[in-house]
């Protein structure tokens, strides 16, 4: 795939997900998430709560650890991992509406002291090397 094709693909993905993230939050979307995942803690995509717990265990997340969540959408699973493990999280994704929702959720959950949300592409991350102890991404397109 050349640079032009990659850029077009990223534009398409961004447009698709910006549309999704602008959709009204609440029923029926939340109801479906509750039915599929057994809980509604901002879960979306295909990563279950058990799988998110597995990520935390595999990466040894806990207080003092700094995690990068690439392609975090509306903050899943980064916010959940910050809340359940006590680690710091930087969540990134391209669609700005998703990052706004993630930031609002971080505020609601009183996680702002440990969570940052940054609109950035996984292909051009604005961080210095060695800035994180661990990184996750779940079904990320760009």
């Amino acid at each position: 795939m050349n640079d032009a094709e990659r850029s077009r693909s990223q534009d398409n993905s961004r447009a698709k997900f910006e549309g999704c993230y602008r959709a009204p939050v609440g029923t029926p979307r939340d109801a479906i998430q509750r039915e599929v995942f057994g809980a509604n803690t901002g879960v979306n995509g295909y990563t279950t709560i058990a799988q998110a717990d597995g990520l935390a265990k595999r990466l040894g997340l806990g207080p003092g650890k700094r995690l990068l969540d690439v392609g975090a959408g509306e903050g899943w699973p980064g916010l959940y991992l910050a809340r359940t493990t006590g680690c710091e999280v930087v969540a990134t994704d391209v669609p700005v509406p998703g990052m706004r929702t993630a930031l609002a959720r971080a505020r609601e959950q009183e996680l702002l002291s440990r969570v940052d949300c940054i609109a950035a592409s996984g292909t051009h991350l604005p961080f210095r090397a060695q800035a994180f102890d661990a990184a996750v991404h779940t079904d990320v397109l760009c």
Binding site: Y46, T47, Q51, L55, R58, L59, A134, A135, V136, H137, T138, D139, V140
Partner: peptide, 8 residues
Amino acid sequence: MAFYTIFI
């Protein structure tokens, strides 16, 4: 690093 991915 840990990640989930869908692939062919």
